[in-house]
Design a protein around this nucleic acid. Sequence first.
DNA 1: CGGGATCCTGGGCGATACTG
DNA 2: CAGTATCGCCCAGGATCCCG
Lengths: 125, 125
Amino acid sequence: MGAPFSHTPAACRAREILDRVGDKWSLYVISQLGVGTKRFTELKREIDGISQRMLTVTLRELERDGIVSRTMYPVMPPRVDYALTPLGHTLVEAVRGLVGWAEEHLDEIDAARTTYDTRAEQVFG
Amino acid sequence: MGAPFSHTPAACRAREILDRVGDKWSLYVISQLGVGTKRFTELKREIDGISQRMLTVTLRELERDGIVSRTMYPVMPPRVDYALTPLGHTLVEAVRGLVGWAEEHLDEIDAARTTYDTRAEQVFG
DNA sequence: CGGGATCCTGGGCGATACTG
DNA sequence: CAGTATCGCCCAGGATCCCG
């Protein structure tokens, strides 16, 4: 106790996964694949605002990390299925904790922001 | 069940906190403050590689979000203490889950990367 | 000591066009 | 359908200087 997550070393580990999951799109992709196996276009349609480029890049990254599996069918037109690996599923579980925290405390954060901004507004013109 | 974190809406919530915690320095600052109250220079010394600018920016952001408290003493030379708020402490708890996942699975990720890169190396020259 | 103000650069990301 | 390739923008964040 005392030390939160034994600070420096553990914080580094945490940052490593934040670098994998904390980018703009990874979490959305992981979230969608948590529902079940999906095809490329399906993901593109469901993840609002993502470009085909970023979907490809994100999927490659996640595949490289062993979080997402890619299954290609040699047919015309091409068909590729994406799914979470077992490792990917454990990640979803881990992230669930953060989501819970978010749902529980996001209002407090918004309130704190409003308070902070209002105070700043009063101090200056 | 089935849906991991009821995908879209919850994934958005998760991204909101990832935007707060997932930047380059926030987690390090939070981690250090989890140990106890610290002064500006103390944090700067303990967080390797952070610039005074980014420490200031990060602290302001966390203060605005109600995660960090700032106490100023009107003395010369100035003295400012930073500490986690109660909300900040709950965040540390939530992040602990991710840290645990990191410690447990980071080796698997590294292995997956090596495998992936090796395979790519064999396919191309 | 604890910052602000400025300037500058890298690379993350979007837009667009082309392919098997 | 499922990508790859190219270009270019933007801004997070580093470096530097100054100030109460």
